[in-house]
């Protein structure tokens, strides 16, 4: 290839990276929302782990988790892109999105257990490693997607490849049905990616 096309391609890649970065920054949560979300998560964890509900324990926990949350506000919430008011966010996550995800994953997990039992008894395996593309960009989103893929029937994530703003997953599939990348991605990911794109970018 000539030098000019190489130059044009490099320009195109820098522009693409730049727009991705702009989208990322423009949808970021403000600082106080980050602190409040981290505080709620840590406070629930404090109450469940400490295990007593006396008043001084709860006040002590509120102060300690608020101090911790103001330092560690980027740890949990750096990749969250979620529209709407803060209370709407917390309520819709606690009563709409988290039960939806748990409902999907419980049935997938039971189905995958029965499928492993069937494969172990009949030995009708047909293994292979396929490569699928994902539309998520953030580290947290890709991590949760890979963990969910490992728990869904017949698949096991081996590696993640991130380059040029696109992420690819290498998946060990115990019963390979198709080699087409889009069809395989649709069969492996299902509706988990749609769910994750509502919260992470």
């Amino acid at each position: 290839m000539s030098r000019r096309t190489l130059y044009l391609r490099q320009r195109l890649e820098t522009i693409k990276e730049r727009t991705l970065f702009e989208i990322n920054v423009s949808q970021e949560l403000p600082n106080w929302e980050k602190i409040v979300i981290t505080w709620v998560a840590l406070f629930i964890f404090w109450i469940v782990i400490s295990g007593n509900t006396r008043t001084e324990n709860i006040i002590m926990g509120a102060i300690a988790t608020l101090i911790t949350a103001s330092f560690m506000k980027d740890l949990l919430t750096d990749d969250i892109r979620y529209r709407g008011h803060l209370i709407e966010k917390i309520l819709s996550f606690a009563f709409l999105h988290a039960p939806q995800y748990i409902f999907i994953m419980i049935f997938r997990l039971i189905e995958s257990n029965f499928k492993v039992a069937k494969h172990a008894l009949l030995m009708d395996i047909n293994p292979g490693i396929v490569k699928i593309k994902t539309n998520l960009h953030s580290d947290t989103g890709i991590t949760i997607l890979a963990n969910s893929i490992t728990l869904t029937p017949g698949t096991l994530t081996i590696d993640v490849d991130k380059k040029l703003g696109e992420a690819y997953l290498y998946v060990h599939w115990i019963d390979v049905k198709t080699l087409n990348r889009d069809k395989a991605g649709e069969m492996i990911k299902g509706d988990l990616e749609e769910w994750l794109k509502k919260i992470f970018w």
Binding site: N113, V116, H119, P127, L151, I174
Partner: peptide, 26 residues
């Protein structure tokens, strides 16, 4: 069934299928 799968599957990756899913679900 996870234990049976670990004993019967041929290589590391298929055995990991049995180990991960059956341990988590059980």
């Amino acid at each position: 069934f996870g234990a049976i799968g670990i004993l019967r599957f041929p290589d590391v990756y298929t055995r990991l299928h049995a180990a991960t899913k059956c341990d988590t679900g059980g």
